[in-house]
Design a protein around this nucleic acid. Sequence first.
DNA 1: ACCTGAACACCGTTCAAGT
DNA 2: ACCTGAACACCGTTCAAGT
Lengths: 206, 206
Amino acid sequence: MIPFVKGIGDQQMNGAHTAERTMRADARRNRTRILDAARELFAQEHPDVQIGDVAKRAGVGVGTVYRHFPDKHALMGALVRERFELFNARLRAAVADEETAALDALTDALRANADSIAEDAATRFAFMRGGERAFAHAADEAEEFLRLSRILVERAQRTGALRKDFDAEDIPMIMCGVCATIDTHKPGWSWHRHLELVISGMRARV
Amino acid sequence: MIPFVKGIGDQQMNGAHTAERTMRADARRNRTRILDAARELFAQEHPDVQIGDVAKRAGVGVGTVYRHFPDKHALMGALVRERFELFNARLRAAVADEETAALDALTDALRANADSIAEDAATRFAFMRGGERAFAHAADEAEEFLRLSRILVERAQRTGALRKDFDAEDIPMIMCGVCATIDTHKPGWSWHRHLELVISGMRARV
DNA sequence: ACCTGAACACCGTTCAAGT
DNA sequence: ACCTGAACACCGTTCAAGT
């Protein structure tokens, strides 16, 4: 398990590193507790986490949550950013990996990402409502994600292993679809099978 | 307080036809209006339709909506049932079709279904939370859907065109994933491409 | 038998008062 | 500077009163 670079930086958008340093000790501690509580709650089965519960678990008042995060989406956005940093680390490793076949490196990253998404309803929500707010709080990371995806996609296409009409944007789109399957705890469904089906569809026909 | 078990199973669960007949004329008219209003609203862009808006558009009070449908999910369930009846009609046609190759018949039905789902946020919701309430109101239809899917899947597998490890349950699972993509209006995404990717993954490797 | 809408419950969000 | 929780807004749902 790769530890998160949690809390680093800003509360929500970008470049608040300075604020982190100037925060009062108790505020910094509360912020960490809120994020920890949110992480734990969003890792639980149902995705409908309430701010009041986050506050209670963090041992702070609701107002404190709202002091650190302007709204629920911003709080979720912080979790989403952490995940994206993890995703990007994996993609960078895949890009650096010259040994593994390009398509395999890409699909392995996809599988690993799906695994960690299965533990975070906040990120699933972001993928399933990508155009909206929760995603916006990880805009930079999402862009980097796309940039790295493009490199891997292009490389895998040059190999001839990946379909020519595959688009780098299809990577998050696929993850969006798998998120939906993960959220739906339906007997007889398996998001693993769903993902493998899509991965199989990525392969170029011979 | 329940004076007479209102709505007894028929308008929402199964076999509404009998009650339909005994309903007072104005009630029957209101019920139709509510469903029409709901259909129109759920066909609109954002899936967060409010009961109050449905009531307003139908020209009735909120209480009337709740008299006909015990809760929001039951109302959505009624729309979902309609869609499933459409899906099942298509699948039955595909089963009856001896001309077309089995896999093509199946995938064509999938494409047609996705098209109609794109116009109904209620059904998308049901697919994306399949284990829950909205789906339950179309349980019979969903079961029939699965039964028909199994026939087509088995037939397409006998042909050798469909992967052997494909499960009939994967059909609704795929639709669930596509629903998520449809809901996410993200520039650069195309649920058509998503669907074709998955369909491509269904094909057996030679 | 059915309709209506004010009232209630729940949860996201705000803000006056506190340290 | 930051914290707190009562109060407010919004939307799903109920129910007393009406026809």
